[in-house]
Write a protein that binds this DNA or RNA. Structure first.
Lengths: 208, 208
DNA sequence: AAAATTATTTTCGTTTTGGAAAATTCGCCA
DNA sequence: TGGCGAATTTTCCAAAACGAAAATAATTTT
């Protein structure tokens, strides 16, 4: 009896499209990835549910992100969407860190989470003045100078126009070094992922 | 002979952590996901390379993003890393779009790709003056005004301090409306994933 | 402590996957 | 049209994953 013809997994669909776009044959893909021609064929036709090991080889061999292969999440925003936030607008809220303005807050499911933050002048750093979260963070100093604190580094001053890219999981905080509040633009990862905790694994490719 | 003890796949590591954080037992996870207890154990211990079918059931059953399960965009940066780019610095290059300055260019494998772009004054929009790429893009106008063009919208003027979040796959471009060049800060997805064509990478947890 | 309870790992038979090679289908050209 | 080379699908078997239940290990109770 022949195999039952399921609908192709996302990996199969991606593989099919990639081959079409690049004009690759199954044999070529096989040599690139180390996955046999027959397996590739079955994957494209939905006759098999590829293992993690195989998907890994596909991803690295074809030079695409693993996420692509599982159809994982293409942007959840509809095509052509855009959201403009005028200066001074944005959904604002206050924390110990400062006065936040969330930009493009009408768009849900964003990949980026851009915020404008007014950083107050402060003498001491209360514990609550620090932030730490998963993922990376990018900060551009719109109006400085500010002092940036991040464990395990010494404080460092950032002037207007300076930027910093750092591991957001380390405790970090800002304070204005100007007469009044300073302003920074912060970009973190969007909070599309459900729960609060989890995330961050050491990228591991296993397989034997 | 007992199974050979490989290192756990990312899925295994995530599963282990999720269970620890939520206090779930293997039996509970099994009932949530429909994956047998024995398989779960083997996945956590790296004794098996889970199939796509199983990973799917894990993701939906646990209500986590598939990307988490495969270590999708866990940060590839070592713990505690940071990179400061002073105003006026950054790896610069020129395109039809304008003069680019890539920020934190010494960090590879970034999730974000921040750029400062000097936008020239121009009368006409040559085809090469447009950009289109996978994924979302966030732009903050550092020094305006600029005109933003994006299909299928009419041109719109953005002032200093305005920002826009949009679907980068639509043709888009800028031109300065000031006397001289304007400047924008652009954040796209890191180039960890964008080889050929196709979809983009996705979100993650965190918060600001 | 021992027993009882609960959680995890291992065993082992069944099902599915992965791959080499055969069979088939699909161009292409004389 | 018939034949030929290339690409894809199918066959078939070894290897691996999956799951039920047994065997351990870890906790709690008495």
């Amino acid at each position: 009896m022949s195999r039952n013809p399921q609908s192709p997994s996302p990996a199969g669909q991606v593989l099919t499209r990639l081959r079409a776009e690049n004009g690759w044959t199954l044999v070529e893909v096989a040599s690139k990835t180390g996955v046999s021609v027959s397996t590739l064929s079955k994957i494209e036709n939905g006759q098999t549910s590829p293992s993690y090991a195989v998907m890994t080889r596909l991803a690295t061999g074809l030079g695409v992100d693993f996420v692509h292969l599982i159809g994982g999440n293409a942007s959840q925003m509809p095509h052509g969407v855009r959201s403009i936030t005028r200066a001074g607008e944005g959904m604002s809220f206050q924390t110990e860190m400062g006065a936040y303005r969330a930009l493009a807050s009408d768009l849900v499911g964003k990949v980026f989470e851009p915020m404008l933050i007014d950083i107050p002048v402060r003498k001491t750093f209360a514990e609550r003045s620090y932030s730490a979260h998963r993922g990376e963070e990018f900060v551009f100093v719109v109006s400085g100078p500010v002092e940036f604190l991040m464990e395990p580094y010494a404080p460092i001053a950032l002037e207007t126009g300076d930027s910093i890219y750092f591991d957001g999981s380390c405790k970090h905080g800002f304070r204005s070094l100007a007469k009044g509040p300073a302003q920074i633009l912060s970009v973190c990862l969007g909070s599309r992922s459900d729960h609060a905790e989890q995330a961050e694994t050491t990228g591991e490719t296993d397989e034997g």
